[in-house]
Design a protein around this nucleic acid. Structure first.
Length: 109
DNA sequence: CTCTTGACCGACG
DNA sequence: CCGTCGGCCAAGA
């Protein structure tokens, strides 16, 4: 399977996200140097889920603190996040800012 | 190359 | 708080 460099970038950023934390599509998009618009492309790329269990796509949520979408279902995503130690209430992440992790890829290390 | 769609975001009313 | 609109990124048909 031949993936695009775009997905590769997301893959690396998502790898940096520690367990028990989450990131947003917008955060990844900004890290890639894009805007709110690129977030759609990010979600679209993750939907294909090229590295299914290798990439913690379930750790990616919306900027609103909601789970957003998930290929296996938002309910399943909620389940996983709770298992990761993230509190979720009414389908939304509790203490969102506390568990939020913004991967910085604006320039490589 | 052009058009459509998308696991989105932020602003407006 | 909720519904609606514009945005101008990427991939597939």
């Amino acid at each position: 399977m031949q993936i695009t460099p775009f997905q590769y970038r997301i893959y690396q950023l998502l790898k940096r996200v520690p367990k028990g934390k989450v990131t947003t599509y917008a955060a990844l998009a900004k890290a890639l140097g894009g805007g709110s618009l690129m977030a759609r492309a990010v979600g679209n790329a993750l939907n294909k889920n090229p590295f299914a269990p290798k990439v913690p796509c379930h750790r990616v949520v919306k900027s609103d603190g909601t789970l957003g979408g998930f290929a296996l279902g938002t309910e399943k995503k909620k389940e996983i996040l709770e298992k990761e130690g993230i509190g979720i209430e009414n389908g939304k992440i509790t203490h969102f800012s506390t568990v939020l992790f913004a991967p910085t890829g604006h320039l490589r290390a």
